[in-house]
Write a protein that binds this DNA or RNA. Structure first.
Lengths: 214, 214, 214, 214
DNA sequence: TATGAATGAGGGTTCATTCAT
DNA sequence: GATGAATGAACCCTCATTCAT
């Protein structure tokens, strides 16, 4: 849905979607392959025509979601240097992605523990790469003076935690639209960074208006 | 440890402490009572002299940690009306508590899913009560004009997510001391709320200086 | 390979050869059809174009190997009456066959248990027929006085066990050649039977010199 | 029954005895723990109060039987140097042990493949130690001239194969008694080794008459 | 209080086999 | 003839929990 993948068998797609739902609802350990299979409408052993193992399925899901997220961020900020514009894009994409893929993100945050060591390293490597994108934005902004002098790592974590936290309560049919939330949290991020510019233009910045996701 | 409890058998205390460690390390479902018992130095069936069930043990832990946290917040802010002072106390206590009890908080955030429905409601009720304390502070501040006009619920979640996120990376032997983090995040919280006062005095507020936990 | 068979599809031949290897290496129960198919270079369900079932494949292999062995013995001793010459042929053929077809023999000795009752009876019937050939030689030799008076059944088992045991340690690239082993064990067999003649001529008997297998 | 072991729980003894029967009848792979448990009269998971794993159970059985056999051989030949007496003891003990423990020996010969590598090495090490006892006897006999000049390794395998083969057909209620078989096969072994002495006294040698097993 | 023994439920996974394509 | 997909049966094993001692 979000990126061009090696054409997948419909059953595989169904399994992956069901896995996200089932893992999100019960947790990876508590979710049984029998439950997953029933959700898909097949028998449990048939899952093995599409997955190598339960853990490998989790790994594939977590890796793919991070790869897709990184690809979006990098596509949006390719060629950009202005920290303000890049931060605006980051917040927009982070929230859009996280709110559209709330279950995937939830599973990704909860189930890292259940990966094997090598898979764990891959996923945390991607995750660190992602947070590194934000850290670079913050550092550039501090260096060029558009942000206050702050600890870039601490601010990275603070902004990321704030943004990701929205997943925990956002409901698509709720009081706030996604665009409301993007606006509010872009403001908050700039405030946290003591941005000396860009705040006034938050409501509708042309750079953030173009379609960022396919 | 944190509040006056019905005098507990030493083994029960050991079980609860070990449970936090084991649940935090492996997750509630993946942690077996055998592992817990071994951590305590007894056989698994002996646990049942102190706990009613695995799920009930989890509930007790989760409820008690929230009760303790609420008690601290309420004790600190009892009689106070100034939103600025109350927010300062809230940030201080939240961070102190969360960083001192990182494992408890981690388990509390991860394992809600594994509670039975009634227990789940109790714990989320306490949790909502806790976030309600912050919402009230924000609302009071907005009403009295010391904070910008913001959406109190959204800001509550944003501040809480930011503060709680510190647990995910703070290490006691790391670069930043707890007091550093309290100062930084108090600043951030005030900035997020557009506080018109209080920012200058963040470094050392008398009300927040007394020991908050036993 | 060893006898004229109903012209077999090359894939069927490959399956039978692979089955011997796989069954010998892992045992019949532990060897899966997937493994067998991979060894052949096809997918598991394709095996069923050539075999009726896994058990039936085992039966065919076990029966065919015994039929071939019996055919060789009977061809070599057809028309012969002298127990000494017949014993010499028996030892030569038994060892040649067993050492050339070590895997087949190994499987035949190990996997009888995994045959269905009817198939089991067929194979053990052939096996008993084979040992019966040796018993007849011993009995004839005792009757005609060229062998000591011995219990023919016990000696049959003793000689067969000794001969077959060579399979367990013989290696084609080892210290002893097949012909060395034939000579040594022919000697041993004659000694066990208290043969009053024939011992001196063991080294090269014309009757045993012709090629016994195709 | 055969040696002093660390006092075992009756259920453990029952499991080990049943395992020998079930493994002998169906083969290790084909024998399920459910079958074993039913044979013992408990539920399958209860087996794990006494065994660590199915493979470990097999290992324990195979190791213990070899350790017991080695202990008997060494006890009988302790202090003896005469190759003739030692061979007589060896044949006697080997046959007594193998015929009394036919199922254990059968499992031991069939299921080596199903051990893990480390366990496999332990058991084959013990087995090689056992065959080494016979090789030493043969070598000593050849050196002192009481046996013909033979290849000690080949003769070791030949004698062992012959002796062990008796397990395949001996029935306690059959035509031949164990003592008959010991006499016959002692004769055969001496003949195979071209023994220049000792043959006449086979029937009842004092050295072999004393009780060899507990 | 502590535990050895037991168990029903269920875990992930492999298997031989079938069948439509 | 070949195979992708599917499946019922069964595998070994772990689990939380009970209970007599």
């Amino acid at each position: 849905m979000r990126k061009e993948e090696p054409a997948r068998h419909p059953t595989e797609v169904a399994i992956r979607e069901a896995a996200i739902r089932v893992f999100a609802k019960h947790g990876f350990k508590a979710a049984s392959l029998r439950m997953l299979a029933k959700e898909v409408g097949i028998q449990a052993p048939s899952l093995y025509n599409y997955i190598k193992s339960k853990e490998r399925l989790l790994f594939d899901l977590l890796r793919d979601v991070l790869v897709a997220l990184l690809a979006e961020i990098d596509a949006a900020n390719r060629g950009l240097t202005d920290p303000v514009a890049r931060l605006r894009n980051f917040v927009q994409i982070h929230l859009d992605f996280h709110l559209d893929s709330r279950l995937e993100v939830f599973v990704g945050n909860m189930e890292l523990r259940n990966l094997t060591k090598p898979h764990y390293k891959v996923v945390t490597g991607l995750r660190d790469g992602y947070s590194g994108r934000l850290t670079a934005i913050v550092e550039d902004g501090v260096r060029t003076g558009v942000f206050e002098a702050v600890d870039a790592r601490v601010l990275t974590f603070a902004v990321l935690a704030m943004l990701t936290g929205v997943c925990n309560w956002y409901r698509p049919d709720g009081r706030m639209s996604k665009q409301d939330l993007v606006r509010i949290h872009t403001d908050l991020a700039f405030k946290m960074l003591g941005a000396r510019a860009g705040l006034e233009a938050t409501a509708e910045a042309p750079g953030a208006a173009r379609p960022l996701m396919v």
